[in-house]
Simulated scan of single mutants.
Amino acid sequence: MPVPLSVLDLSPVPSGGTASDAFNNTLRLAKAVESFGYKRYWLAEHHLVPGVISSAPAVLGALVAGATRTLRVGSGAVLLGHQTALSVVEQFGLLDVAFPGRIDLGIGRSGAPRLPGTSAAPARSPQPAHEVDGLVIPEPFAFTLSGELGERIRTQLQLLTLPGAQSPGFAAQVDDVLAFVNGSFTTESGHRAHAVPGEGADLQVWVLGSSGGESARVAGERGLPFAANYHVTPSNVLDAVAAYREAFRPSQWLDEPYVVVSADAVVAETSERARELASPYGLWVRSIRAGGGAIPYPSPKEAAEHEWSDEDRKLVADRVSTQFVGTPAEVVERLQTLQRVTGADELVVTTVTHDHVDRERSYELLAAAWASADEGPTR
């Protein structure tokens, strides 16, 4: 059997549409992919972004879980730097009460400080775009906190953090999450505290990461499953997976490493149609990296009218070159390569198109082709 496919949804707002449209499309998509055979449905966390509504994964997850019956539903990821471990466990514990055995708590480091003694991914010299056994590894994108992007991130942190509040380091927050779920949390003064709901919840706790740094190490050392981010930072995916596996220690949750790898994909009946549907993607990524946040997702017509500069193209090159676009057979082949090279135990696919019917159809075509692949990757 091929490895499972799952879904990551940002609940995008289409250009000309509303937040209500995005919400209704998310519920429609969740119901559809459940019938197509996808394993889980993750909801991202983004703030101050005009083009997506996934700002509260626990709230949106409750609505998605209530509209479905068998899908695992969760966060991909809730950002611990913006909340306390207790508040996160209580929220997802309540979801587990309502939908027992179906809830994933995916957690990410973004927004959390990096304390002295912790490390980012090891520095290495940027490599030009290349392939590893058929998998495209693009030249790394150099994030900077200058200009509009830096100002937006600073504003986000200011508005999501109470004045004077200090967030613990990421590893400490993950430990607190696990302690609350296990019922073993103790304050520095020795007081036992219990998350109700949350303690004893049947949650799958995940760590999501974009590099071979702290997130991969924390997930491995605590024996948690790990999701590596090929769809946002494709240049780092092999480093992230390797760092996780190197750090892995068996735990009460896992005897051996479990890796999910994400990918952007657009599937249609013909290559030409798939490329047309995917054509706004570069413009959408540009809006994110230029600092304004994701714009409402453009139509192919709007994308065709954009005049691209060399600087624009460089800004989005790594993301555009690693989006999987084509017929079902073409995209399945590329996903098989991604699975083979990374050794992923599961793939999570994110698909964005302007019209919802095309997005839903893309997931339908992919699921059918994946299930029927004669020589797909094995579990």
Rank of each mutant, 00 (worst) to 15 (best):
D9N: 13
L10W: 06
L10Q: 07
P12D: 10
V13N: 04
N25R: 14
L27D: 00
L27A: 05
A32S: 15
I53E: 01
S55W: 04
G61K: 03
A62D: 00
T68R: 11
T68V: 06
T68E: 05
R69P: 00
V73E: 09
A77F: 07
V78H: 09
V89T: 13
V89N: 10
F92Y: 14
F92I: 03
L105G: 04
S110Q: 14
G117Q: 12
S119R: 15
A121P: 02
S125Y: 05
D133N: 15
L135P: 06
E139M: 09
P140S: 12
G147F: 12
R154N: 07
Q156T: 15
Q158I: 01
L160G: 07
P168C: 13
N182E: 15
G209Y: 05
S215C: 10
R217E: 11
L224F: 12
L224I: 07
A228Q: 08
A228S: 13
T233K: 09
S235N: 12
V259G: 04
A268G: 03
S271P: 00
E276A: 04
A278I: 08
S279D: 00
V285W: 13
A294R: 04
P296D: 06
P296F: 04
P298Q: 01
A303L: 04
A304D: 05
S309Y: 07
E311K: 09
V320T: 14
E333T: 06
T337Q: 10
T342S: 15
T342H: 08
A344D: 07
D355V: 03
R359D: 02
Y363V: 02
W370G: 02
W370A: 02
A373V: 06
E375I: 05
T378P: 01
